[in-house]
Design a protein around this nucleic acid. Structure first.
Lengths: 339, 339
DNA sequence: TTGAAAGCGTTACCAC
DNA sequence: GTGGTAACGCTTTCAA
């Protein structure tokens, strides 16, 4: 029996414990701990000393119960197949750490956000939630709205309820088209995503409309399923085309698909960029690898996350704030894959 | 003023609310909700009905306060540069979802776990924590021990305090060596990690000891920094070697480094596996890409996570349980990169 | 089968 | 400056 061998785990220090030790009221302890100026330096030092001595750590959950704010933000991540979400996770974690709050993983994966997921948001009293992908059912959105849980979609456009911050996807598509046209490309292939997210639709629109401006149009359009394998298959399909039907430029709507395309072309001994130029979208770190050297539009992820948190925090303080829709221009990164 | 335009947000249903509605005591509601058999079917149905009608959702935090169990597990992730942690995150999320608890991101990235991080574990009353990387300072470990927060390292060996579950790294190293020797390779290169994690040290030991058994030894040993770029640089270095000094087999201690090696070799027009065989370790999904077709040892990640949760849960119930150290055999996956 | 009441650790509000 | 006390929402005895 551990109760015999080890002394009964010394009860954790609490506000009450400390107040007794210091001979003051619990409320005084609270105030001293949070640096309330109205407390005399003497008592404050006393309390701070005791707190340190006894290794006091506030119980955030209890605080939440009485104050309403949990310091917890929910995070919904898209499919593991796209490294973009990895970047997002790490960036969000980094920023949350700095801002002093925590991230609760609500869902990760391709599937839709089910009611049960939305419920977790409520049950854990999160102060807000960043949704980077997945479809929020309108019922789930409703639940959040009803419970005043502010939502912000990153890299997605909003439903009925919620803010969003995205890259200016349309403008990105336009830039890629312009670049390719300027480099003398004339036959265009697009590797898109059928499970149409707003994001990829906008990228395509920008691209295609710019082509049309120049009196050009798509020669090929293949579903790349938003992952490497899909991109790879698309690349194979393109490589298998008779040379005169083959595009001389391919725009893959996300970097991960572009990498698949590049690898498929390489294995088919098609030269990039000589035979075919390739561009992606997202600006994944891996797109910079020499083997890919991929031209792409880099999303300003750090800033996007920062805005997301700002939106969330503001709405935590004042729930009546209207939804805000922020789009920021991505940065065209020209690398070897476009010649 | 939203207070004029919109009706004051209808207060969330709570146990008390429901009890008043049903004309019973709060405790009865609690019991009915959790399916206590001693409650009459009639009252239970009544309460369940009301709960549904009013969209009742328990406040998990309040529950934690009174019951002690939060249903929250902390997660510490290693560097974003190794996709292995991505896999781990998604697998852990999937399983947590099934088991009905939530993951709190405690830290993500290469750095050490600072005290403040350990504090978060305590403050949020997590029921336990999965640490997949990073160094836990002994002070941090102490904090956890003192507060009865069970710890389990996945893919790391434990410090003073905590369980661990890993792949049998040593055995994996042995298997790779055996395979390469059997395939007639005689000059061996190793791409290791200097910031020596126990994990990679064991893999190396297994590999080297098996070589020695066969009277062979390492010809080259290069630090690959546990990431793609490091592996790539190592590959370049190897490619730059005069042909007679070049190894004919390379074991990279992790898949991500192996991919870097492969790309560097390919860009240097060195043929794999004809000129050089390459093997990795981890079994990342991307190692299966045709362009890599990498021979590797696949870690049984799902099972590892499952055990991790089991260890954690058991220790939540009975903190006096001794630390357990679990190692499981990885699976050799032979692909084209080894001939 | 149900009720009453005492916590859980913190904060907030109102006194003094 | 500080104290007292009532919440916060839920669970858990102990009674009935």
């Amino acid at each position: 029996m551990s109760s015999i061998l080890t002394p009964p785990a010394p009860r954790r220090a609490t506000v009450v414990t400390l107040s007794e030790l210091a001979g003051v009221a619990p409320s005084t302890v609270t105030r001293a701990l949070k640096g309330d100026t109205r407390i005399s330096k003497k008592t404050r030092d006393l309390i701070l000393g005791l707190a340190k001595e006894h290794g006091y750590m506030p119980n955030v959950l209890a605080r939440t119960l009485s104050s309403g704010k949990s310091g917890l933000y929910g995070l919904v991540l898209g499919s593991a197949e796209n490294p973009f979400y990895l970047e997002l996770l790490y960036e969000a974690t980094r920023q949350a750490e700095k801002l002093g709050f925590r991230l609760l993983i609500i869902h990760a994966g391709g599937g839709p956000i089910e009611d049960i997921t939305a419920q977790a948001l409520i049950q854990y009293q999160v102060d807000g939630c960043i949704i980077s992908s997945a479809i929020l059912s309108s019922r789930a959105a409703e639940i959040c709205a009803q419970n005043n849980v502010p939502l912000v979609m990153v890299n997605r456009v909003a439903l009925a309820h919620g803010c969003f911050v995205t890259c200016d996807n349309r403008a990105g598509g336009v830039e890629i088209a312009r670049l390719m046209i300027a480099r003398g490309r004339r036959r265009f292939g697009l590797v898109y995503t059928a499970s149409s997210s707003s994001t990829s639709r906008e990228r395509e629109e920008g691209f295609v409309s710019e082509l049309e401006q120049a009196g050009l149009k798509l020669a090929v359009r293949i579903d790349g399923h938003s992952n490497y394998d899909g991109g790879y298959a698309a690349g194979q399909e393109i490589a298998a085309l008779p040379a005169h039907e083959r595009p001389d430029a391919i725009f893959a709507l996300s970097d991960i698909m572009a990498m698949g395309v590049l690898d498929a072309l390489r294995l088919a001994s098609i030269n990039v960029p000589e035979d075919i130029a390739v561009a992606g979208f997202d600006g994944l770190p891996s797109s910079a690898r020499p083997i890919y050297d991929l031209t792409t539009i880099q999303q300003p992820l750090p800033l996007m996350i920062q805005r997301a948190f700002e939106l969330l925090q503001a709405r935590t303080l004042d729930p009546s704030l209207p939804d805000e829709l922020i789009a920021m221009r991505g940065k065209l990164i020209i690398r070897g894959s476009c010649g």
